[in-house]
Design a protein around this nucleic acid. Sequence first.
RNA 1: GGAGGAGUAGCGAAGUCUGGCUAAACGCGACGGUCUGUAAAACCGUUCCUUCGGGUUCGGCGGUUCGAAUCCACCCUCCUCCA
Length: 306
Amino acid sequence: MTKVIAIVGPTAVGKTALSVELAKQLNGEVISGDSMQVYRRLDVGTAKVTPEEQQGIPHHLIDICDVDEQYSVARFKQEANSAIKDIAKRGHLPIIAGGTGFYLQALTDNLSLGGKQDKDSEAIRQRWQELIDENGPEWGWQQLNAKDPQAAANIPVQNIRRVIRALEVIEISKKPFSEQEQRTSLDEYLLIGLTTDRQVLYQRINQRVDIMIQNGLLGEARALYEQGGKNLPAGKGIGYHELFPYFAGEVDLDYAVDKIKLDSRHYAKRQLTWFRNKMTVNWFDLVSGQNSINEIKSFIEDWLRN
RNA sequence: GGAGGAGUAGCGAAGUCUGGCUAAACGCGACGGUCUGUAAAACCGUUCCUUCGGGUUCGGCGGUUCGAAUCCACCCUCCUCCA
């Protein structure tokens, strides 16, 4: 069992800076736990660490796929695990930094994620989507309810995406979706959560969006838009999809920028919800000065020691 | 000074003609939550106060009525146009 540090929290609380600082002091390497930073060319909008900010610390799972590819939790889990192994082999400390709760949890809790992915899954999914388009969400949910009542009980009728995924897994695995294999964690994780006063956090988010615009977010988003970003998973990213209607001439820039800020705030809230309720996190507030990096560092050192 | 128009819950906005079914639609925001291969996704709940029995609301103050956000009088504020 390798000991792994994970720095989690909402967007714009300073996860990146902390992870680099800790890596420097604790002989670590950073693994990004972020569903959008995996994409090349999506730099300013994803607030990806710049080469200068990396300060020579190796960073993993950044810039590993093209914008027209579809990344996934399962792939993240597998790649993060192998990065952890490599880093440990080098005698370094793996430090995960990221805000994608689902990704982080898939890793820390070793979620089985529906078993093996079938190559037909895309077709299966599409077929269900078409059937549901035709017969309605209620019908789709009933299909699931007939095959796996327990799964159906946990998925709202309106949440078509999750209904379809459950149906897909059942079809591929021939087993109920609710019968997920329980696994134990592969490694030992210490979760460091960064947070701060909500008002302050929102202000920081708003400011950061303005800075992103200054740093060329428009050009980056436009390139994605021109590659058909509207229909790509990468194009779902906050900071990108809000700009597409602007490029299409449907809304003005101020409106789009305000929307980015709003979506980012909402996102931060969802992140907080996830980390508060689904994972065991040790919270610190560096923004207000209530806690210090040194405090976190010794907290980690204590944990590493025992 | 004259002529019109408007003031509804955090904001926007219905409801007012045809009084009761209206603590008041809907949207936004805010807050809370769900989550096992798209997760920066997708989806849900709460949102006047409450000791959950009730209590107090629709600019203000009176009035009509069994009953008023809705009808009448007066007052205040804002907007547009004319002078």
